[in-house]
Design a protein around this nucleic acid. Sequence first.
DNA 1: GCCAAATACTTACCTAAGTAAATAATTAAG
DNA 2: CTTAATTATTTACTTAGGTAAGTATTTGGC
Lengths: 145, 145
Amino acid sequence: MERSDHNILHLLNQQVRRLNQRMNEKLKEYDLYMSQWVIIYTLHTMGPMTQKEIWQYLNVEAPTVTRTITRLEEKGWLVRKQGADKRQRIIHISPEAEQLRDEISTSIRKYENEQLLGLTKEEEHQLRHLLEKMMMEEGDLNAED
Amino acid sequence: MERSDHNILHLLNQQVRRLNQRMNEKLKEYDLYMSQWVIIYTLHTMGPMTQKEIWQYLNVEAPTVTRTITRLEEKGWLVRKQGADKRQRIIHISPEAEQLRDEISTSIRKYENEQLLGLTKEEEHQLRHLLEKMMMEEGDLNAED
DNA sequence: GCCAAATACTTACCTAAGTAAATAATTAAG
DNA sequence: CTTAATTATTTACTTAGGTAAGTATTTGGC
């Protein structure tokens, strides 16, 4: 049986795709995508942020955040306000969205914890540990070049 | 310290994005993307396959494979041949591509093993185990609905 | 104070991956 | 044997993510 011939990168990709699909399915009833929800959630925990702060926090590039925020603004989830520095745009969750956000938060968190991964607390901890280790290695690799 | 407030899904996404970026960078000199390479590699290990076999094996949807194969065919990496069933298209690695494929294979495998993950063999094994467990759980979830 | 460099964001264009619907070929039903 | 259902692939359209280049504002050098 050759299933584990699948290399680990491939496995990772498959899992992440699958998990995102499941989350998207779950979020569909709120007309949100995972990547959109992540921004809303981040703004909730961190408070209003500039776009730069958001993309740095999420580890994506600036245009990705521009796009997603534009969509969320159009749908009324977010508001862009001008900062003291007029280049900056400070992103807030719109007041009307707050209640719905809270509802989703609860529903999603529950889903994540109970069903999504299908791992025990111990295994989840292990996974987090491994991911964080991989994350750290990233920075070091340059030393090798 | 709130770094681990980043939930695990987020961590997974970040890692996978980062790993793919690194692989893409590595593959750039061959004018290939990760997702394209995966198909070439799969055809090498499995032999000629129909598109359906490919997308099932890779766990993606049919249009994804259509697109990527079209690009690879245009660049001369693959050849589409008609099957006995005329709906099917059987994909082969083009003879001219074989040698280059072999070269990339070596270079990539080495990179993967030595540098990419930054995990020990033991940790990598652990990670594979967790991913495979998650994979299995996927199928079961429906029972819950 | 004015002009060059840096910074924040946006636009344009690339690939990946998904869903829904179209097309072409095969199989099944009658 | 003709028609309906199924199957394999493709097309069209969506979002996500990336890089490169453009715009607007701010900062620094002089």
